[in-house]
């Protein structure tokens, strides 16, 4: 029987499959039980960097405010959506908070603590070892205004300029051998050990593992310099190299 003939089996052929996946997600940790204050600060952040998180899937971690009562989670979800973020689930939280989340159509993620969260990048790093080595993504043409380049699960190496209005993202570190004039976001899956290296720092925004800095005025000390950017105890450090 030729392959072209349809057999009754075709109708029963699998129409879908279910697979597990590991995706980089932005985690929003509420540090205080003050949704109004958090909303204000988030709005402030998004005003400075409007496209920063556009369309980004967000997990809300309620761990630090589990003891609080009367949290207006629905308000927070609406706020995020209004700013083009896509809240997809909550982690931790009280029953009442979790009910609000389900009512808003969010998924309930398994309970887990912050320490575990932080350990994810380490696990990944290990599993990458020599066996699962994923080669860096190399870009040899300029990244221009309006363009976005993302190195998924690896480092990004740009051999030309990243111009103003362009955005480069990587789960790992970012190296830019031309001037870095646009935005560079390293460790976007939360990898705190990711770094940014560049030939000439003229960037608009730099971020590692979600900790970002808007360089409105080129930082006088480092403007045009060859630098590295890394996280030290949660703060962004810039240093000449």
């Amino acid at each position: 029987m030729g392959a072209l003939h349809s057999s009754p089996d075709d109708a029963a052929a699998k129409a879908f499959e279910i697979k597990g996946g590991l995706f980089p997600l932005t985690v929003l940790r509420l540090l205080k039980d003050n949704i109004e204050e958090a909303s204000r600060q988030i709005e402030e952040l998004l005003r400075k960097a409007p496209d920063f998180f556009t369309g980004a899937p967000v997990i809300i971690d309620l761990k630090p405010i589990e003891n609080a009562r009367g949290t207006d989670l629905t308000g927070l979800i609406t706020l995020l959506q209004r700013h083009s973020l896509v809240p997809i689930g909550v982690r931790n939280g009280t029953d009442q908070q979790r009910q609000q989340a389900t009512a808003a159509g969010l998924a309930l993620l398994p309970y887990g603590d912050g320490a575990k969260l932080r350990s994810i990048p380490e696990d990944r790093g290990k599993s990458r070892g020599h066996k699962g080595l994923s080669m860096s993504r190399i870009v040899s043409r300029p990244v221009r205004s309006g363009q976005q380049i993302y190195a998924a699960g690896t480092d990004l190496i740009v051999l030309a300029a990243v111009n103003a209005g362009a955005e480069v993202l990587a789960d790992g570190s970012i190296h830019v051998y031309g001037p870095l004039r646009g935005r560079a976001l390293a460790g976007i899956g939360g990898q705190v050990e990711a770094r940014i290296f560049c030939r000439s720092l003229e960037a608009e925004v730099i971020a590692i593992a979600g900790v970002y800095r808007v360089l409105e005025e080129p930082d006088a000390q480092f403007a045009g310099q060859q630098v590295q950017v890394y996280l030290s105890q949660g703060s962004l450090m810039i240093e000449s190299v």
Binding site: P142, G146, A164, G165
Partner: peptide
Amino acid sequence: VRDSDRILGILASKSRRAENGAEP
């Protein structure tokens, strides 16, 4: 200059040559 930069990005990604993987 900024707009020219954007157009250069589009030439490099959305033109027929880019789509066909031909010489830029």
